[in-house]
Simulated assay, not measured.
Amino acid sequence: MTEQTKTSAREVVERFLAAAVDPAGAGLADLYGDSVVIEMPFAPPGFPQRSETSAEELRARFEAGAGAREYEKVDGVLIHETRDPEVVVVEYDIHGKVVATGDRFVLHYICVMTVRDGKIVHSRDHTDPITGARALGMLPKLVEILAQEGK
């Protein structure tokens, strides 16, 4: 692989971070490949730990979630390039609010992204599932699932 490929992966991640806080969600889904695998190893019970999807399915998902929460800024960004020019590790905090309540939240992420031909084709996202459930308005569902598991 060339240095150009290595730079391209970093640039895609930088565009991802900028698009994540764009109020219109402009271009976020466009950064993903036609076929993408998203893994969330710390997903709570009842939520998928792995999904295979497409940029168009992600676009619909992003649009559906846009009315529930607003992301305002990204900070604490560290981008680690690896020996594999297609793989980048990014650490960041994304700040936002729940639209219905105005409650603010901060999600802390570490993502391992594989970028091929300028598109994200694999992402392994590590974050706190409780804070995520709260930010997505799904905390009651999570509590219900955990309560059922305890019986």
Score class of each variant (00 low, 15 high):
T2L: 09
T5Y: 12
T5R: 08
T5M: 12
K6P: 00
K6E: 10
S8H: 13
V12Q: 13
V13H: 03
E14M: 09
E14N: 14
R15D: 05
F16D: 00
F16C: 08
F16S: 07
A18V: 11
V21C: 08
V21A: 05
D22V: 07
G25H: 08
G27E: 03
G27C: 05
G27A: 05
A29L: 02
D30H: 03
D30R: 04
L31W: 03
Y32M: 00
G33T: 05
V36M: 06
V36E: 01
V37C: 05
E39S: 13
P44A: 14
P45D: 15
P48E: 10
P48Y: 01
Q49H: 14
Q49D: 12
S51V: 07
E52T: 07
E52C: 07
T53C: 07
S54C: 06
S54Y: 09
E56H: 10
E56N: 07
E57R: 10
L58I: 08
R59V: 03
A64N: 04
A64W: 03
A66M: 04
A66H: 00
G67M: 01
A68M: 06
A68V: 15
A68E: 09
E70W: 02
Y71E: 08
E72H: 07
E72K: 15
K73R: 10
V74T: 05
G76F: 06
G76W: 01
G76H: 08
V77R: 02
L78C: 09
H80I: 01
H80V: 07
E81S: 05
E81R: 11
E81G: 06
T82F: 02
R83W: 09
D84S: 14
E86Y: 05
V88S: 06
V90I: 10
E91F: 14
D93T: 06
I94V: 11
I94P: 01
G96Y: 06
G96D: 04
G96L: 07
K97D: 03
K97E: 10
V98I: 14
V99D: 08
V99W: 10
V99Q: 08
A100D: 12
G102Q: 01
D103Q: 11
R104K: 15
F105H: 01
F105E: 00
F105Y: 15
I110M: 04
C111G: 08
M113T: 10
M113V: 14
V115D: 03
R116K: 15
D117R: 13
G118V: 12
I120Y: 09
H122K: 11
H122W: 07
D125I: 11
D125R: 11
D128M: 13
D128C: 15
D128S: 14
D128F: 14
P129H: 09
I130V: 15
T131A: 13
T131E: 06
G132H: 00
A133C: 15
L136E: 13
L136S: 12
G137F: 08
L139Y: 12
I145A: 04
A147Y: 09
A147S: 14
E149H: 09
E149A: 13
